[in-house]
Design a protein around this nucleic acid. Structure first.
Lengths: 345, 345
DNA sequence: ACGCAATATGGTAACGTTCCCACATGTGCC
DNA sequence: GGCACATGTGGGAACGTTACCATATTGCGT
């Protein structure tokens, strides 16, 4: 049981068993140069016999490529990011790359610490899903300065020279508002996260839809909340209800916020959707609430796939051009949280 | 912009700038041996000036330790495992270790492929959260054979010589059943996943509670379902309703299953909890459903922390004894999905 | 017979680090 | 003065791999 000192067989061990030189073994493994069928067989047999596993560390040292990418994200427990991670990882492992997970918990010192570690590990590239404050720009710069490819996936705003995958949040906002307008709503409250680019895009979309329909959109109907959390959704909904602007529908900046709003509405004795319609955003929790949330579907998994693809393009040097920007379409997912407003309300 | 060929400064570069030998730089960085205050200052200054980042790859090659651990799990998008991952990663990074994420999607060939990759990367240890069929035993053996410490966290049954962190599922089952009995229920349906150790422990717990209370528990009340998914929960609930054993409450093997059941009950025109009480398991989605699910809380994050701790103990050779088993307590989380049964039903 | 490919092999220098060893110095003590 | 011992320094081998180079040994055309 206490069998710690197990040495991994090396290329030399294989060579010894096969009765050839390490160079020959290297050639068989690397598949370059000339090797006789005879030697090849003996090397392969020796590898099997010893259970040889090539040492990726030594390999990386020599080749200067680790076949490893880092993923920096706020929290894995948020399904939005977990889905991106899943997409990333699927493409990465299909190309023989591994993913190092860095769940920063939004703490700046942890984030830069992770940055340092990834740099020391000499990852071949980095995907960022972090909200875009100044510190992220500095972080990204610390990577690009060293020639490391970086792709931003659903975080931050544009970073100079960095590829980016986002969703068409503005159109999402438009679709949500349009849907409500079509149902007959005219006073639509929006729960927007303060300082979030995403939220302001959603707002822009809503505004456009309302303007197109000739519906008024007083400032009172927008509530700024602190974060993309259920708690923030609760307080936001409470504020909205108390303002007396009497909305008949609410658009939340993500499903978690909508979830908080649903709770508050329930407490207030309001039935969803009869008394109040609610639309979520991102389709993470929407299918699990009661009533099920009508929401805007974001292709997070897809975004992860594409982000990985862009990154690998850069890493394997298949693309060296200007920064690219991929904008993914969003869709309205109709469930049970929207109905026409009560007449006479 | 096309500035790919950026060479990382090495210890030699630092030595050159500081005007000392590479050995001296090594001593300053490694903090061993003797170095004059003078040299130390110059080396530190040179490091800062060049933006030196030690090369973890070269370090690993020499030291034979990568400060990296692998985490094999079914899916990151399942919050149950994402929470474990979060715990793992928190402890790991606090100790200077990185986590390589391996979301296997339950596919066997991917799993063994990941195993190979982790072995090649020479990770220092591995945490497994995979269901316990034979292939997992072989996988675990492929690690332990090479002297790699392995910890199982909420997956599989006992593996010889491998540490393990689990929760007291049996007691969870007991608590759930007991709670329902106290509310006056006598016919309690259970949705159990076929072939799952977890589910059979939950069943054992239920049986014990029912026996203690002198309540009958006919086989009809147990429905075997295919997986821990919402879909499986739906079909299971349907089967239970059609059997005519007229349960007044349902215990599901996890929250997702309960979610499926809630949907079916709603369709069937049954009100939860008035017509049927429901108890979930694992507290992942419970707070987000309407009605909110009463469930059994599992300390997943905590489990991740402990698993990492056990693994690091082994890796850093602070523990070399017999396999340990940590059983975490569970708790009943009371929300709104349980009520006394209708009288006369 | 000769040259000149093509084929097959081994030697060896890197990659960037760690750490042991040898060699300076200096200091205190008999 | 000689010796032990602490202090400071540089040299160099190793970690396991890759890939270039030099050296066989063939076959084949002239």
């Amino acid at each position: 049981m206490h069998d710690r000192p197990v040495r991994h067989p090396t290329i030399k061990d294989v060579a010894l068993v096969a009765g050839v030189s390490p160079s020959t073994v290297g050639r068989v493994i690397g598949g370059y140069g000339y090797t006789s069928a005879e030697s090849q067989q003996r090397v392969l047999a020796a590898m099997r016999q010893l259970g040889y596993e090539p040492n990726a560390v030594a390999r990386s040292l020599k080749s200067k490529r680790t076949r490893t990418i880092g993923y920096l994200l706020p929290r894995v427990t948020n399904p939005f990011f977990a889905q991106i991670a899943e997409g990333l990882q699927d493409v990465a492992s299909a190309h023989g790359y591994s993913v190092i997970l860095c769940s920063t918990d939004m703490k700046m010192e942890r984030t830069s610490e992770f940055g340092r570690v990834l740099l020391e590990h000499r990852v071949d590239g980095i995907v960022l899903s972090l909200p875009g404050d100044d510190s992220v720009f500095k972080l990204a710069a610390s990577f690009t300065d060293r020639g490391l490819p970086v792709v931003v996936c659903h975080g931050s705003r544009r970073i100079h020279g960095v590829d980016r995958v986002i969703s068409d949040h503005m159109h999402g906002g438009y679709l949500a508002a349009k849907h409500l307008i079509n149902m007959g709503h005219e006073r639509i409250g929006v729960l927007a996260v303060k300082g979030s680019t995403t939220s302001s895009l959603i707002l822009d979309g809503c505004r456009k839809a309302l303007k197109d329909a000739g519906v008024d959109f007083p400032a009172q109907l927008t509530v700024e909340i602190a974060s993309f959390s259920e708690d923030a959704g609760c307080s936001g909904a409470r504020v909205l209800l108390m303002r007396g602007c009497d909305p008949t529908a609410i658009i939340a900046s993500n499903d978690l916020i909508a979830l908080g709003a649903l709770g508050v509405l329930e407490e207030a004795g309001l039935n969803v959707p009869a008394d109040m319609s609610v639309i979520g955003f991102d389709n993470t929790f929407a299918a699990h609430t009661r009533p099920r949330l009508t929401t805007i579907g974001i292709s997070t998994y897809q975004a992860g796939l594409i982000a990985a693809q862009l990154l690998l393009d850069r890493i394997e040097d298949n693309y060296r051009g200007e920064a690219r920007e991929v904008v993914l379409p969003v869709e309205l997912v109709v469930r049970g949280s929207v109905a026409p407003p009560r007449r006479g309300s």
